[in-house]
Design a protein around this nucleic acid. Structure first.
Lengths: 137, 137
DNA sequence: TTAAATAATAGTAATGATTACTATTATTAA
DNA sequence: TTAATAATAGTAATCATTACTATTATTTAA
């Protein structure tokens, strides 16, 4: 059965694909350019609903607002400490590696792992070689 | 050189060791029993300072207030979805397993990983066998 | 089709965690 | 034993997010 989307949901989904792991506020600012009457609450509500539906991922960063990812398949994220950009892992990082970690965690905590939140931080390739910063992307 | 602690810092550290991964508010309530004049701001300030000093860990849970762990060595956490308890991994989970994940992440994102935030969720042993809930710990 | 039922919205208020600020008190050092 | 420094209590401010409400849009079914 085809999933029925509200008008704004469609717009939000489309904007999400154009921006790079935006926050709700960033989605709001972008959507507002073409639909000035939209409200931040509507953006939050639709993003939250779509995340619950498994249509997108909600990402939890320490000391920062949540971000949203239109790619709902299981993958993880690495953030560059210099330029702030966020990079997706591909499907190779889950798979057996995640299974091994889950096993190790279960072995020493007793918790049968069902899901995980993981954020990696470091320095991206461009910043390693070019000395880039948040300012000179 | 011996690290000089303020009075409250000592009290906070001591309370932290007795409670199980408490939030700042929980530390505050506990400390208040013996030092009723302490303020929540002081608790936050000291916990934050101690975390910056590497004397304790600040833990970031999705959709929940931060928690604090007096064990500052590198380890990770698993939370039980039924009873809410938080379990520590021991030192075996870092080590080579973390190194492998870091490598895999670097391979597909280009980010040289320096640190990570990881929270595992699932069902703990007691809840698996006893059908325990948050209510009947 | 059109009136009743349902869903979504804009706008705003409320909440919760955390930090910032300020005047005061305690601690250290010369 | 005073001057400089640090820490504190108490409160205000901030930021992300959710809740609420009156209104508007959409669907349904007679």
């Amino acid at each position: 059965m085809a999933r029925r989307h509200s008008a704004q949901k469609g717009i939000i989904g489309e904007v999400l694909a154009r921006l790079d792991h935006p926050t709700a506020a960033e989605v709001y600012e972008e959507v507002r350019k073409n639909f000035p009457q939209i409200s931040l609450g509507t953006v939050y509500r639709n993003l939250s609903l779509m995340a619950e539906n498994g249509e997108l991922l909600r990402l939890y960063f320490p000391e920062a607002p949540d971000r949203f990812d239109p790619n709902a398949y299981e993958h993880y994220h690495a953030v560059c400490l210099r330029c702030g950009r966020i990079f997706d892992t591909d499907r190779t990082v889950p798979g057996e590696l995640i299974g091994k970690i889950d096993q190790a965690v279960e072995a020493c905590t007793g918790v049968r792992v069902e899901s995980r939140v993981m954020i990696f931080s470091g320095v991206c390739k461009a910043c390693q070689s070019g000395g880039r910063t948040q300012e000179n992307l």
